[in-house]
Amino acid sequence: MSLPLIIFYFFGILSAAAAIYIALTKNIIYVAFSLILCFIGLAGVFVFLGAEFIAVTQILVYVGGILVLLIFGVMLTNRLKGEKLVSQSRQKLLGFLVSGMLFYVLLQGILAANFSALEWMSAESGSQTGLKTLGMNLMTEYVLAFELIGLLLLIALIGAVYIAGNKRKEDKHAA
C-alpha cells in the first residue's frame, strides 16, 4: 500500500467518522466542528480524485462561508445562557431504520454494479490536473449555465438579505 493511498484512506475515513459523529451527537457546537473535519476530509479525497479546484472551493465555500453562517444561525436562534447547546433527537428508531435500509440498498447497488466492466471506465485519466479543462469548459460549453448559476446566487443572496432583514416600515406600522 503506497503512501498516497494511505493518506487517501485517512481522509476518507476521517470524513466518514465526522459524518457519523454529526448524526449521533446532540451538541450543536460539536456538530459545527465535526462538519469542518468532514469537509476538510472530503477536500482531501477530492485532491486525490484529481479535482483540486473543487477541493479548494469546498474549503472556501463550506468551511469559510457556510459554516460561519451556521454558527451565526445557532447564535441568533438560541438563548445563550452558558449552558451547553443541545439539540434533542426523536424518531431515532425510524430514522435509523430508513437510513440503514437505504445504506444497505446503496451498498448492494454499488456491489452489484460491475463498474469495471463498463467501456468508458477504461479511459481513467489518473490524477492529472483538470483545472484548465474545467476553466475552458465553464467559459465555453457551460457558459450559459455558469451565468445562470451566478444570477441564481445573486438572487439568493438578495433574497436572504430581504427575508432576514428588519422591515422597518412594518415596524412603524406596528408601532
Partner: peptide
C-alpha cells in the same frame, strides 16, 4: 453512501 445516510438520519431525527 455513508455520508448520504448520515445526512438523512440527521435530517430525520434532529429537532
Amino acid at each position: 453512501a455513508l455520508l448520504f445516510c448520515a445526512g438523512l438520519y440527521t435530517v430525520i431525527t434532529k429537532k
